[in-house]
Each structure stands twice: as C-alpha cells, then as structure tokens.
C-alpha cells in the first residue's frame, strides 16, 4: 500500500513538473506564440483528413489555376487540385516524418553520446572521429545519395533523417555526460559496485535528459527544414502526396500569374518552423539551458 502511494506521488510530481515547465514556457510572449503555433499545427494535422473539403489528388482540367474564391479558399494548382486541401494535409506529412525522425535521432544519438562519455579513452576517440567525419559531409549530399539509391518512401526518409540529425546529438549527450561523470554521486555509485548499465539508467540519464531533449527540439526544426528542402529538390516524398516542399517546387514555375499556390504552402511551412523554433527556445530557457552561443551543427 505504502509503496503504491509513493509511486503515485512520484508520478504526480512528474506531471506537475511537466506542467510547471509548460507554464514557464508560456509566460513569455515568444514562448506562448511558439506553443500556440505548434499546437495549432498538431491539431490541424490530426483533424485535416476529416475537414479537408476536396480530394487531395483529384485532378480536373476545369479547375486549373483558379484564383482564391469561396469554393477554393486558396485557389487551385496547375493540375486543378484544391490548394487549401493540400496545404492542411501537407502538415501531416511534415509532422509525421520529422516527429519519428527526431525520435530516432534522440534515441541513437543520446545513447551513443552517453556511452562515449562514460567509456572514454580509445573507443571514445575513434567514435568521435567518425562522428566528426560524418558531420563534415554536407547533410544534403548524404541525404540525396541515400534517397537516390534507396528510393523516396517514408520508410527510407525517416531513418535516414533520424541518422543524419542524430550525429549532432551525440556530441551534446557526450559533453553533458562528461559534466556529470566527475560528480560525487557517480563515484559513489561505482564504489557501491553498480554496473555500467545501472549507472547509465539511474544516474546519468536523469541528469543529461534535459540537455538532450533541448537539442532534440532544436534538431526537430532543422530536420523539418532539411526534409522540406529535400522535397523541394524532388528527393523527398513522391507526388501526389501533399507536401509543402513539393507544392512550392511545383508551383514555383507558374508563380508569376498563380502566386496563391506558392504562398499557401510557404505560410504553412514557415509558420511551423518558426513555431517549433520559438518553442524549442522557450523549452531551453524553462530548463535553464543556454544554447545561444552554439553553432548550428
């Protein structure tokens, strides 16, 4: 009975802590704006299939390049598809791919970083050299190579994005582990004879979690940028999937007389990226982590 109470209390504390962080984030206007935008996009992504007024892939020669009107709020594109429908569905693609990609990046980057920080020595040196080498291949070249050889399905894109955006997290996780590892409680855990696994799980992860999560939030917005750039270049998801990068690239050639089909996805993508950035910044500040002097690597 008693142990049950304690775990319940712990659980409540965690929820309360998360709520506290959210409250701190929303207390500044920039954080509030960011949270609102992200929330708006997430809700829109969840409900968009039910509220979309048209079929996103319905092609019709009668409705080509129509200007915005009561029937087509954002006009139509060069194939006669409704831009409003495609814009609100585009957020789904972007959010799904980058959310799962970030999750993969956080997992492998975080674990490898902690491992390197803990083990140190030769293994650490070698792994960090390899990570540095991966960092010095421009991400766009690596992504393009993978995608052009393995295809452009989301099953390829998500792990590939997760892999390339995780290598920066390795560095952050390693640095954070280095800071923790010299502390007394690790030394005493070692003295108590705890295994490496137990030290990682019980001592290190709770202490480096914040730094890794903040980095992951930042990576999320960069990954969205990378993913939409890939789509824009024609190496992202394949048509007719509604995707912002793809829509901008398709509509770009005709924007001298049909600017609406390029403006709608631009507003969608820019607002989501700005929203995630503001949220990540507020998140970092709420956790007391200063990342203003870091380079975007």
């Amino acid at each position: 009975m008693e142990s049950n109470l304690i775990t319940e209390d712990k659980h409540k504390n965690k929820l309360e802590k998360a709520f506290e962080i959210l409250k701190t984030m929303a207390s500044k206007p920039s954080g509030l704006i960011g949270l609102t935008i992200v929330l708006f996009h997430v809700i829109l992504a969840l409900i968009s299939p039910y509220i979309a007024p048209y079929d996103y892939k319905a092609i019709s020669p009668n409705t080509m390049l129509l200007a915005p009107s009561a029937e087509h709020w954002f006009g139509t594109d060069s194939l006669g598809r409704d831009v409003f429908t495609r814009t609100i569905l585009g957020g789904r693609t972007a959010l799904t791919v980058t959310f799962f990609g970030s999750l993969i990046a956080l997992l492998w980057g975080g674990l490898l970083g902690i491992f390197c920080g803990l083990v140190g020595g030769k293994i650490d040196d070698v792994v960090m050299r390899v990570v540095d080498a991966f960092l010095s291949i421009p991400w766009i070249l690596a992504m393009l190579l993978i995608v052009s050889l393995l295809g452009t399905s989301t099953e390829v894109l998500i792990p590939a994005l997760g892999f390339f955006y995780g290598k920066g997290i390795v560095r952050v996780a390693r640095a954070a582990t280095h800071d923790v590892i010299a502390k007394d409680f690790i030394v005493s855990a070692r003295a108590r004879g705890h295994s490496n696994m137990s030290i990682i799980w019980n001592e290190i992860i709770p202490n480096v979690r914040d730094a890794i999560l903040v980095e992951g939030a930042m990576r999320w917005s960069w990954m969205l940028l990378g993913f939409s750039s890939l789509s824009f270049l024609g190496f992202g998801v394949s048509p007719p999937t509604p995707d912002w990068g793809l829509m901008i690239s398709n509509a770009r050639g005709l924007m001298s007389f049909a600017y609406w089909s390029v403006i709608a996805p631009i507003v969608g993508l820019s607002s989501l990226i700005i929203g995630i950035n503001l949220t990540a910044d507020a998140f970092a500040k709420a956790l007391g982590i200063d990342r203003s002097t870091k380079a975007p690597v």
């Binding site: 917005s221 940028l225 939409s228 750039s229 824009f232 990068g245 901008i248 690239s249 770009r252 924007m255 600017y259 390029v262 631009i266 993508l269 820019s270 990226i273 700005i274 950035n277």
Partner: peptide
C-alpha cells in the same frame, strides 16, 4: 534564419 533557404529565395524572386 529559421525560414528555409528555398522559401526566402522563392519569395525574393516573387
């Protein structure tokens, strides 16, 4: 710095 390059470039052209 947050808006992707291809968007700012496209807007510049537009």
């Amino acid at each position: 710095m947050t808006i992707p390059e291809f968007i700012s470039a496209t807007l510049l052209i537009l």
